[in-house]
């Protein structure tokens, strides 16, 4: 008793094709490039302190405005003769850990509220959506400026501000996707069989939204990097004295003519890391689309 559509012998072939296509998906060009770049960024962020060639804080007044690559200054030096490469490494670590921590907080808050809204219609949904609507009505950079200025400089004030303000995107996507999964018949079947709410969430819903979460994580990371560098560009994120890409850029701006690299190096670094994260998001989205298609067929 087999159905006619695929002959029994075709099943192994289908399986092989599936495995091959999975392998091919991973070899998605965007994901490979993004993977390499993310690895480089991660290595620089973690082992950055070993790669510094000079003291990032201590300048050599004899070596002010050294152009890129000269006298051992890989990326040149600034107006106080400080090594830009070493300062950029410190900034990299600051920016990345800032964006990463804030993103994780966003992920936790946003997906919890999104799942809650999807799972419980009634007042939990109303409240979750009302809070999200309210925050979304309010540009988070505006709030962030006010809050960071008032609370003060430092890592945690900045991270917590971004973490508690920038999560609505997660809530919206998780709510939309989880709601659609809760409507599927397989979730209904599980409920009828007596499977508990929590297990349905863990076993059916979370795996179903995992791909989307990864995509937003990447795109949102890029957004947070821009926000963080913008704030420190304005001089209100990082504590005074800590070099970040934003404030290196702000300093470089004053010597635009004399030493253009002081501006171009941090600007380039910001652009490259933002593009990397966008690339990762795009690649993961393309991969999950492709896999989704192979599941649907």
């Amino acid at each position: 008793m087999t159905d006619i559509a695929p002959p029994a012998s075709a099943n192994t072939a289908t399986l092989d094709r599936y495995k091959r296509s999975r392998f091919k998906n991973i070899s998605n060009f965007e994901v490979i490039v993004a993977g390499i770049l993310v690895t480089i960024i991660a290595v620089l962020a973690i082992f950055g302190s070993f790669l510094q060639t000079h003291d990032p804080m201590q300048g050599d007044l004899m070596a002010r405005f050294t152009p890129v690559g000269e006298k051992g200054y890989t990326l040149g030096s600034d107006n106080l003769g400080r090594d830009l490469w070493s300062r950029m490494l410190v900034g990299l670590r600051w920016s990345m850990s800032c964006a990463l921590t804030a993103n994780l907080i966003n992920l936790a808050i946003g997906s919890t509220l999104g799942l809650l809204a999807a799972e419980r219609p009634g007042w939990p949904r109303t409240i979750s959506r009302q809070i999200t609507d309210t925050l979304q009505c309010f540009p988070f950079l505006v709030v962030a400026i006010v809050v960071v200025v008032i609370i003060g400089h430092g890592f945690w004030p900045l991270v917590l501000t971004l973490g508690f303000l920038a999560w609505p995107i997660y809530q919206r996507v998780v709510f939309a996707e989880a709601s659609s999964i809760f409507q599927r018949d397989y979730v209904k079947a599980a409920r009828i069989a007596g499977v508990g709410r929590f297990r349905i969430m863990i076993q059916h819903v979370l795996p179903g939204i995992r791909a989307s979460l990864m995509v937003i994580f990447a795109f949102h990371f890029a957004g947070l990097l821009i926000a963080e560098s913008a704030l420190s560009f304005l001089g209100i994120g990082a504590p005074l004295g800590v070099p970040t890409w934003g404030n290196i850029l702000a300093e470089g701006r004053q010597y635009m003519l004399r030493a253009p690299w002081m501006m171009l190096v941090p600007a380039g670094a910001i652009v490259i890391s933002v593009v990397t994260m966008n690339l990762a998001g795009d690649g993961i989205a393309a991969m999950s689309r492709k896999r989704g298609r192979s599941i649907d067929v």
Partner: peptide, 16 residues
């Protein structure tokens, strides 16, 4: 796609 990664203030600085 690459342009999407350029923050507005970087564009502003380059244009200036």
């Amino acid at each position: 796609f690459v342009f999407q990664g350029i923050p507005g203030y970087v564009t502003a600085l380059v244009l200036i």
